[in-house]
Amino acid sequence: MSTKNKTSDGASKGKVTESLWTKAFTSNTEWPDKEEFLDVIYWMRQAIGIVLGLCWGLIPLKGFIGILLFVAVNAGVVYFYVSNYQNIDEEEYGGMWEITKEGFMTAFAGFLVTWIIIYTGLHGSESL
């Protein structure tokens, strides 16, 4: 695998981030730099975590089903994105497990914080 088109740090950051966005949202993109792709997965995870936290807090979803649903949706979306949308060969990244755990704990903590805070704000006075 060639890494010739690796971008130099800071030189054209605006251009790089812009192209990263388009790359992330275009299906079947070539990812010569593995780190870039893993970064996309990482940030996608964080976004999903916060969005789900907001939703669960607003509904409000209570109990462990909320956590289980988060894990399922988070893993499912990433799995779908990697294997169906981008058609990545997961072996290149050390198996699906490596991709699945990329940024998971941080996303989980972010999800819990948003869920707890929205829930406290809207339904804190009710008892569980």
Partner: peptide
């Protein structure tokens, strides 16, 4: 001793 938030789960 202050309750700072309400957890949506046990």
């Amino acid at each position: 001793g202050r309750v700072v938030a309400k957890l949506p789960f046990h």
